[in-house]
Design a protein around this nucleic acid. Sequence first.
DNA 1: TATGAATGAGCTTTCATTCAT
DNA 2: TATGAATGAAAGCTCATTCAT
Lengths: 180, 180, 180, 180
Amino acid sequence: MALRLFSQKGFKGTTIKDIAREVGITEGAIYRHFRSKEDIIEHLVERITGEIRELIREEVLTKKDIRKQVDSLIEVLINYAFDNPDAFRFLTVYHILRENGRNGKLPGNIIIQLFREAYAGGKLAVSPEVALSLIIGSVERLFILWELGLLKMQREKLIEEVKEVIEKALFDVSDSMRTG
Amino acid sequence: MALRLFSQKGFKGTTIKDIAREVGITEGAIYRHFRSKEDIIEHLVERITGEIRELIREEVLTKKDIRKQVDSLIEVLINYAFDNPDAFRFLTVYHILRENGRNGKLPGNIIIQLFREAYAGGKLAVSPEVALSLIIGSVERLFILWELGLLKMQREKLIEEVKEVIEKALFDVSDSMRTG
Amino acid sequence: MALRLFSQKGFKGTTIKDIAREVGITEGAIYRHFRSKEDIIEHLVERITGEIRELIREEVLTKKDIRKQVDSLIEVLINYAFDNPDAFRFLTVYHILRENGRNGKLPGNIIIQLFREAYAGGKLAVSPEVALSLIIGSVERLFILWELGLLKMQREKLIEEVKEVIEKALFDVSDSMRTG
Amino acid sequence: MALRLFSQKGFKGTTIKDIAREVGITEGAIYRHFRSKEDIIEHLVERITGEIRELIREEVLTKKDIRKQVDSLIEVLINYAFDNPDAFRFLTVYHILRENGRNGKLPGNIIIQLFREAYAGGKLAVSPEVALSLIIGSVERLFILWELGLLKMQREKLIEEVKEVIEKALFDVSDSMRTG
DNA sequence: TATGAATGAGCTTTCATTCAT
DNA sequence: TATGAATGAAAGCTCATTCAT
């Protein structure tokens, strides 16, 4: 997959020939499907952010209260990352690099709204941006450690632990007692 | 600085000519100071990880208990990132991209030991890897939001909030009450 | 032909652009046929030594006695040199220069065996190495003189004269009388 | 010596820095002694052809008859080549390569006159150009074999054998009997 | 529609030469 | 006079893109 190449070698570091070989067609044929290298990248971003957005819409937004939503978000993100490592890594690289002055459409946009409402309603003890960073940042770092082979934990256990930790971080204890 | 270029455009995406122009010398002159482009990158990594490692040694490792160490670590990381945005961004890019099969020397190596000891001693309610990811990941994401202008909060306030949140996440409440 | 360039300007002195212009294609296209400049040189060496080796096998090795073989060798070498001046000159340059520490495969290897056998069998009055040097060295020098326009003689006459001279040099007179 | 570098790596293949390092001074200092790289080469050619010309004048031209002169020439050439391998090799490379369209001043110019006179006087059975090529070419080839370690013979013995062979090649037997 | 040879701009690196010290 | 950093023009090579087949 071109994803693997882009996410490991960068955008300039991946050549059309690399991609053609990986996909099993020839250089020229690629230009039947995409107008340019840049176009390939944009399509990939679109696809991946679409997938994640869809998962969030189906799994996260359907939950009723903010705690369940956070739990679900963590589960969705970790599962997506570990099931689609190249895609997840690709997205991270895309967001960090600004090779062409792109202004990365963060898929967090849908989520931030959730946190804003919860924060406004007093159901979140932490400012929305910090909450979002806590979740996404943690997952990203854990993913890197996992890829480096430094994370021996089983996935189910990992998800549980992260849920627990994030819950403690984001919500008041009293609140937790009331709900729990 | 070459840092800015590398961190924004990637390693392949940054040309020697770019760097020369930025630094104000000619292309040829660069090769009197560095043997190759790769050499430039290695020197930058060395310098930045050295700086951060030094700060951690001076500020974090000198604290007595794990809570103070975590507080200090958060402060050091956020301050370094916001004071040296290009350097911090550079390091992030370096760790994610594997253009040449490099095995990024994560500066987190010194910190993980801290968490391992605290975890073994029962002073940390969370596994070391998750604790590390929580802190570093959050800071990285907050930094990205800040760079995108999506984080209006004042730095002092941000540090306080992150400290508070991480503390809740990492340590037991009872524990917190005893110490507090 | 790239041969002409390499043989006149040396290996470092001949640029890919030079070759491309000479051959009538662009620089990039060259790399579809050869992996590197070094690769071009190796192919040329292979081709020329192959051609000469083939000629020697067909013309020289098929002769019965050593005198006829020497005559044939002189004829083959002079004809090849004068018919393929660039190739012959190229080979000479290749053998003398050691730009990359190459250990030139001298095509003389096949011939030296001939002389060794003749020498061992008492049919050659001169040590094999000297005999070989006499023939190849003379032809090389005559070729240089010819290229500089200092050799007005007709080719046929030249071949005859060289044959005569070399024969006198290599074989005993008595021997000569017996055979002649 | 710069001679070694030029003769082994070619003119373009040898850098000013190479030469500076070899000679033990700095790049800039070279330009106090020579105007350019080309200038260095010309000086070297001048020196070496001068040395050989001088040897020929002293050793060869002072002999009375053509046979003694040929013997002496062989001795001078072989001794010079084996005592100054870099210089001899340099000259060979210089004569073959035409990097800048130079028209190599062959030091053979002085000798050819000798042969012309002998040929005109009936004392030489071979045309002057062939005679010259025979001697110089043989020595050059023998030198290459020697450098490649393919010539085990002792120098004195080599000189004797070459003298003998060349004598047989260049002069009539009857003539030889008369003189010998 | 697919191929892959060719293009040509641009990249990293080298190097003869200059010049401030 | 000697040094060696800097210059800047190539050099070898790569690669996104085009196009004849």
